[in-house]
Amino acid sequence: MANVQLTVNGKAVSADVEDRTLLVQLLRDHLGLTGTHVGCDTSQCGACIVHIDGRAVKSCTTLVGQVDGANITTIEGISKGDELHPMQAAFRDNHGLQCGYCTPGMIMSAIDIVNRYGADLDEDTVRHELEGNICRCTGYHNIVKSVLDAASRMKLSIAAE
């Protein structure tokens, strides 16, 4: 057993967990943040992606001990109250999801992509950068459309701030 202290969606969290606890298990089983999904457990599908210190990471292949002291953001932490994050709004408006299983991971990946590329984002880049996220419903087309739409919305909202 070990005590870990980290920040999750802006709140300080302290947990006593077994050494073998995965980050995704801490989030889902201990903190009740079930928006982050488990797909493959082997870092292939991307359903479990969260942000660790601002970078998209697969939480199924990250041990809690490795992120002691880190700042974690999950899908639950990106909206402002009832106001959706621009990426969430773009997925809704562009029909970027069907069953929804991959969506939290897609959105967390996509926010990281927009943060890194900003205005330079084009369709090829989005498709290439989303390789770590698997969707079995949409055929990706509307997901890519959503990310590109959100990229322009996020640019506007950054400019407005």
């Binding site: 870092s43 991307g46 992509i113």
Partner: peptide, 9 residues
């Protein structure tokens, strides 16, 4: 090598 989301770790 892998994807952006695995290369980040």
């Amino acid at each position: 090598t892998g994807h952006a989301q695995t290369r980040s770790r």
